[in-house]
Amino acid sequence: MTHIPAVHAEGLVKSFGDFRAVDGVDLHVAQGEIFGVLGPNGAGKTTMLKMLATLLSIDMGRAEIFGVDVRRDPHRTRQLLGVTGQYASVDENLTANENLWLFGRLQGVPSKKARDTAADLLGRFGLEEAANKPISQFSGGMRRRLDLAASLITRPPLIFLDEPTTGLDPRTRGQMWDTIRDLVADGCTVLLTTQYLDEADQLADRIAVIDRGYKVAEGTPDELKASVGNSTLQLRLADAADLIMAADVVRRLLGEEPVISGSGRMNVALDAADRAAEVLIGLREAGIGITSVSVDAPTLDEVFLVLTGHDTAEPELEVAR
């Protein structure tokens, strides 16, 4: 049996004056999926999410949430969505408890049930000790969690998360990832945006890469990474004079041309991280000394360089007049 898609959008366009922040994006998210929208600052991620969430008007194109036309039926659309924006959207004047109660009441949850749901969610997000503190005393991570909790009150089937972990420390970030996975295990569909390839890689079933309002690539994390090589081996030789010899070793072992930079540094693209060992063994056998070595996953910068031919610097506003 085929199910209606959670999100189906065609040719979305949003302009601010002469500037097209979103320029003809198609998006298709199946139910039960974590879909990642990956892009640098100013790519149009937030704008796109806001269009789908009825927070910005759709200039051109069409969007459906579970088959409901976003533009024609915003009220129904809003009943199907939980939106956690990029910036905390909770009330600074209220406590955590009061916030959740209020958002519950505003969505027609009876007072007592709203209180119970608030307590339940605060427990689930590790905020029960802070339940009665004003939000102004919350840390960034606590705000983020409360914000997500506020989106879950009516257990909507689709959750939008705009950069859910930007600004969180690594531990809190991992916890947020677990929470998001729990949501999906629970039957939710999640559409999230991120600037980090590793986050999209960790969480998403499928990823769309967007840049300057266009979708430049789409696929599973593995497909995307394969298009840029899986990882990079970075070496620093003890003696810069060995570089020519070391490059020969790499060519012989991997059939790959290393990138050589000054002062004995060398970068090698690897299709699989474990091939780094072959290079290291080969260098030792050739008697070439190494002072430092690392294997890194391709960064968003590298993905972008490959996919778009430019780096992730924010686009200069090319205002056509």
Partner: peptide
Amino acid sequence: EKGVFDRFKSLPM
């Protein structure tokens, strides 16, 4: 101007 209004707008109220 506050962030919480973004949420009010996104709710079916």
